[in-house]
Write a protein that binds this DNA or RNA. Structure first.
Lengths: 121, 121
DNA sequence: ATAGTGTGATAGTCACGCTATTACAGTTAT
DNA sequence: ATAACTGTAATAGCGTGACTATCACACTAT
């Protein structure tokens, strides 16, 4: 369900976070559904408990999930379209695009890139 | 000429690199023109010599500039359109866009973003 | 010679990501 | 009550990357 790429530059906890958002986005995880426990997911991914905890914590701070002591983590109500998350994602794109443009990449190339990536979703 | 942003997540040497590429791209630095010396630029930016050296070294490895012992660094011949640099910049954009799309950002928003950023160049 | 270049090496600091481990508090099922 | 789960919290250690601080050396130009 979640796949880690250790050769990528994006941190493990970030990958977990992004993929959970993706699953929530796709409707695989519906509101109030319980997520895998920290320990269970850590074991499944072959990763330390702290790392999963970190990912969940960040997700909680973005109001994607919420926690209940002794029970677990659950998908938040309007997690599927979360302004904070989308805003941050857009900001990353903005920085990358801005940098690319300043280095001489043409906007047409960027349009083509987005068009191509859009089809694989 | 070069401005550093210490609050940004992009490393100093990377910022130096990008802004020099930008200046080369804009035609401020023409081929075979001499760049500020490592020590001079370091002093001007209030940064360690090693940091500027690192930036210049990366630029040299990308064939944007070249060095001559005892003389200095100079802009390379076809520095203005460097495939390696543009390829790397595109790859960063690809990762960011891919991530944003998977998080539910619509491609129209991305198009608008690029359009807006293109005008400020 | 002197002052400027690039080159190379070493060492130290700091932050970040991840791991390892321990302990505590709450929930649930038996 | 007990056991087996949950989340929470704190500490410590390791490796890496970015940056700083120095020193020494080789080459160029005046």
């Amino acid at each position: 369900m979640i796949v880690l790429d250790y050769s990528a530059k994006t941190p493990i906890f970030e990958q977990i976070k992004e993929q959970i958002i993706f699953l929530v986005q796709k409707g695989v995880f519906l509101p109030n559904v319980r997520l895998p426990s920290i320990r269970a997911l850590a074991a499944q991914l072959g990763v330390n408990v702290n790392t999963v905890k970190h990912a969940y914590q960040v997700l909680e701070e973005s109001d994607i999930i919420y926690s209940e002591l002794g029970k677990g983590f659950f998908v938040a109500q309007n997690a599927a379209d979360n302004k904070k998350v989308k805003g941050e994602a857009l900001e990353v794109v903005r920085a990358a695009v801005s940098s690319a443009l300043s280095m001489g990449v043409k906007k047409e190339e960027l349009f083509n890139l987005i068009e191509a990536l859009s089809e694989n979703i």
